[in-house]
Amino acid sequence: MLDLGLAAKRALVNGGGQGLGLVAARALASQGVAVALVGPDERALDRVAPEIGALAVPAGAGRRGPIDGAVREGERALGGIDILINAAPVVTAPAPLHEIDDVDWERAGAEHVLGYLRFMRAATPGMRARRHGRVLNVTGVIGRNPDPRRLPESTAAIAVLNLTKAVADELAPDGVTVNALSPGEFTGPDGEGAADEAIPAGRPGTPGEFSDLVLFLCSERAAYVTGASITVDGGRSRGI
């Protein structure tokens, strides 16, 4: 049995109130990690946090003040942050470029790319001081496989991959790893995915198939993995 060495670690999950952020948070909690969930929807956070024994920290999307405040509150409540999961990619309504308003392009940059940067900037000084830390930036697989009808999301996603590598170089000397995860399609917490021929694996992934990778990358076993962007999509992405 692989010892992940995660017990007694402390994690802040941006976007932990729902979706794959919540999946990651639940998995970390199951390994004995103390977890704080950050998100814009206070009610959603309050609903799920007790389920997994986590702390709920509401913070508006993409604004600096609330992000710095949420990270400070998380650090205070947990006694420090060892693991940062950024799992709040921007979502915009599908449309071709000529029908997309500037507001969506602005949100893609400000909330997704700069938002992740702000969380990293706020949460990593403590990690560097302790010479240990893990950062995971979760972003859509459409970064490497741009979707012509979801260009704000696609362009922001690849920008996050670029940022991930750049920040990984900055933090590596201090024992802090920074990686990106690009998940494809996953089923909800209960649902079995319908068969899907477009996916070489023939089906969407299950939450556990996502969170196992999260746990590995956050663990002591992955100390030499940094600056990587890893796709977990059942083989769906085209290209290499």
Binding site: V113, T155, A159, V160, N162
Partner: peptide, 8 residues
């Protein structure tokens, strides 16, 4: 990140 976004 901006240059990467332009590729996508």
């Amino acid at each position: 990140p901006v240059h990467a976004a332009l590729l996508a």
